[in-house]
Structure formats: C-alpha cells, structure tokens
C-alpha cells in the first residue's frame, strides 16, 4: 500500500519547509510573483534614473552605449563590474531600502533603486 507522506506530515512542518525553501531562494513573499525590470544605459545616463521594485524582483541593466559601464551601489550591496557595450547584467533585489548607485567608470552617471 502506498503512503502519502505529505498527507501524514504535520501541517506546521510542511509550512516551515515551504518558507525555508522560499527564504533560501531569496524570492518574493508567498503569493507575489517576481517582476522583471529593465534599466537602459544610454547617452551616459541610467533610464529610468530612479526605480522602485519589490524584494525578489529582477532588475536588468542593458548597456546601449558605445563604451563600458557599471552599476555599482554606493553601499557596495551590488556591483555589476564592467558591462560591455550591448551587454546586460541582472540583479535580484534582496536588500530592502533605497540603494544609490553610480557607474564606477563615469562618476557623473547616477541612479537609485528603492526596494520595498
């Protein structure tokens, strides 16, 4: 006779395992689908310069300039390193708060990602 293990497991244990898996993956809260956002790097600017996302969302920078750039958080919470012309870099938003960032190569280029 086959036994349905899940049916017999205490509900609290199943819930704890589910939450642990979600937490380890750093994804959105249960029931909230992670969204994808794109920030264009063009004409030596981040477009949009400010962006608000939820924890677990994915933010992709795409370099449309002819020169390399970076997206480097002032607090060092994220750093793309060099993004070649035509290249992309994706950050999964995990650190709540407002993250100011700049291009490490071109200090006049600044942006901000707010993570709720």
């Amino acid at each position: 006779m086959r036994v349905n293990v899940l049916a017999r497991a205490p509900r609290a244990l199943v819930l704890a395992c589910t939450l642990a898996i979600l937490g380890a993956a750093g994804t959105s809260a249960p029931g909230v689908t992670a969204k994808e956002y794109t920030i264009a790097i063009e004409d030596m600017r981040f477009v949009p310069a400010t962006l608000t996302v939820r924890r677990g969302d994915r933010v992709t920078w795409i370099n449309r300039d002819l020169v390399p750039h970076t997206a480097t958080a002032t607090a060092k919470t994220f750093d793309s390193s060099s993004i070649a012309p035509g290249g992309t870099w994706t950050y999964v938003a995990t650190e709540p708060g407002t993250q100011a960032y700049a291009c490490a190569f071109h200090p006049t280029m600044k942006g901000e990602v707010s993570i709720r």
Binding site: M44, R45, T108
Partner: peptide
C-alpha cells in the same frame, strides 16, 4: 550625436 554624451561626461569628470 550618439558619441556626444560621452564627451560631455568626460569633460565633467575632467573638471571634477
């Protein structure tokens, strides 16, 4: 037109 912003950013960086 496309390369112009790079020259602007370089100029500002050099002034800083």
């Amino acid at each position: 037109v496309k390369v112009r912003p790079a020259f602007v950013a370089h100029l500002e960086h050099a002034r800083q």
